[in-house]
Design a binder for these strands. Sequence first.
DNA 1: GGCTTTGTTTTATA
DNA 2: GTATAAAACAAAGC
Length: 276
Amino acid sequence: MPELPEVETVVKGLRPLVEEKIVTGVEIREEKMIAFPKGNISAFKEELIGSKIEAVNRRGKYIIFELNNNKNMVIHLRMTGKLLVKEVKEFRDKHTHVIFSLNDGQEIRFNNIRKFGRVYLIDKNQPEQAGGLSKLGPEPLSNNLSVDDFKKLFEGRRAIIKSLLLNQHFVAGIGNIYADEILFRSGIRPDRTADTLTESEKEKIYHNMREILQKGIIYGGTSFSDYVNAFGEKGSFQEELRVHQRQGEECYSCGTIIEKIKVSGRSTYFCPQCQK
DNA sequence: GGCTTTGTTTTATA
DNA sequence: GTATAAAACAAAGC
């Protein structure tokens, strides 16, 4: 599932392929995937066609195409979304639901097995038009987020720590896989509440969060089922996972059997020996 | 055909 | 207003 490292990898792959290109056509096969402007497909197409893609960036799990007409096209991949750049003549599979043609004979294909992904075409100065984009917490890898800044985020918080890490208003970009891995490497049970964490434990979360997300990017993301980058290539961070999806197997650190539980309705994997 | 999956949004409650 | 948790929602694959 695309989380921060996967989305970052997609963005890095897209940049050299689409920056400075002009959108020459838009084909929408699933109108429900156009979330803004809602119910106005012709406006969406009109505003997009003819625009130039000046930059591609990431915020949390959102991909932002900066256009030269004072608009941003924002895409969220949700669970199964892929953004692929292909030659027009290449085979299109049946899960390709939105297609953006470019002036160099290539096209950006928004491929989405479960159709959960969303596209927003918004005014540059009105990020609130793109769902939760304007309400995101800080970027976990930002140079501006110091360990003290991170510890301050916990003030007044008493939620279950895994839920907090998944809460995009708390910190942006972490999903189910990396949340489990961050807590394992920090030695913290995922069902602890935030108000029981010591200063040293919060610092561990901060450092492990940055280290693991950074490493996830270096590995090109985690490909469990169907995540691929803009070139259709899989990542390899799944080989580095210590607990996620390892229920019933031995912990690499202590040999205890990894458990699977539900935390806030989400599948959660942890080592009952290493995580306290 | 019910269950599982995850990220986000909505709703209810304190 | 804020924090939280639970529920709802999306749709496909098994």
